[in-house]
Simulated assay, not measured.
Amino acid sequence: MADFLRPEARAFFRRWREVIIALAVASLGLYWALDGVGITVWLGYIFIAIGLGWAVAGFQRARFAQGGDGPGVVQVRERRLAYFGPLDGGVIDVADLTKLELDPSSHPDPSWILTGIEGQRIAIPINAKGAESLFDVFSALPGIKTEAVLDVLSHTPDVRVTVWSRTKPLLH
């Protein structure tokens, strides 16, 4: 049964599964809202709202995902980001990030360059295993525009681009 779908079709459904499930929830809500009685109608409206909000978030995550066949592994645990690559890696707290860049010239694949307060840098290929978890990390950065991140990723520039930055906090 595992060979029922081609690998490309499985990859497509895996990438867009969150959007598909969210639209199914919204469809169930629409059915209840139009055909329900009593409290079911109100539950239908709630399901529609939840499903559509979930679909928007899932659509953004699906656009961000680049596959997981690149070099290295990304882990995010308790607001600490770790990248374990074949040649380099590092660990940085999300609260310590001061700059996020996309470097299209890195080899073999474009990479996210994360810079910390003390100047440490981590280069994470956009298609590293677990790199889709970076979307939630980037979305939590203060003042970041998620659409700007997705635009830079979909229209890869020729030179390094700063997607987000903040000033270094000063101590007294």
Results as ranks from 00 to 15, higher is better:
M1V: 14
M1I: 12
M1Y: 02
M1P: 10
F4L: 14
F4Y: 05
F4N: 11
E8R: 08
E8N: 05
A9M: 08
R10F: 11
A11Y: 03
A11H: 13
F12Q: 10
F13R: 00
R14Q: 11
R15G: 07
R15W: 01
A22F: 07
A26Y: 00
S27P: 11
D35M: 14
V37C: 03
V37S: 11
V37Y: 11
G38Q: 05
T40C: 04
T40L: 07
Y45F: 13
I46L: 11
F47S: 13
I48Y: 03
I48A: 01
A49W: 03
A49I: 08
I50R: 13
I50E: 15
G51F: 02
L52K: 06
L52I: 11
G53M: 01
W54H: 14
A55W: 05
A55T: 04
A57L: 14
F59P: 10
R63D: 07
F64W: 03
Q66K: 15
D69R: 12
D69N: 15
G70S: 00
G72Q: 09
V73I: 04
V73F: 10
Q75R: 11
Q75K: 14
Q75A: 14
Q75H: 14
V76T: 00
V76H: 06
R77P: 02
E78S: 03
R79C: 09
R80L: 12
Y83N: 04
Y83F: 15
F84E: 15
G85S: 00
P86W: 07
L87M: 15
D88G: 07
D88T: 06
G89R: 04
G90C: 04
G90P: 04
V91Q: 09
V91S: 05
D93M: 03
V94S: 03
A95N: 09
A95P: 08
L100Q: 05
L100N: 08
L102C: 02
D103T: 05
S105Y: 09
S105R: 12
S105H: 08
S106H: 08
S106F: 10
H107Y: 14
P108A: 11
D109Q: 10
P110I: 01
P110Q: 05
P110D: 08
W112V: 04
I113M: 13
L114G: 05
T115Y: 06
T115I: 14
G116C: 06
I117Q: 13
E118S: 10
E118W: 05
E118V: 09
G119C: 07
A123S: 10
P125C: 04
P125T: 05
P125F: 09
I126D: 00
I126Y: 09
A131E: 02
A131T: 05
D136C: 07
L141R: 10
P142W: 09
G143L: 01
I144P: 09
T146A: 12
V149F: 06
L150E: 06
V152E: 02
S154P: 13
S154W: 09
S154C: 09
H155Q: 12
T156R: 14
P157D: 00
D158P: 07
D158Q: 12
V159E: 11
V159H: 11
V159C: 13
V161T: 11
T162L: 10
S165F: 06
K168Y: 15
K168I: 10
L171Y: 10
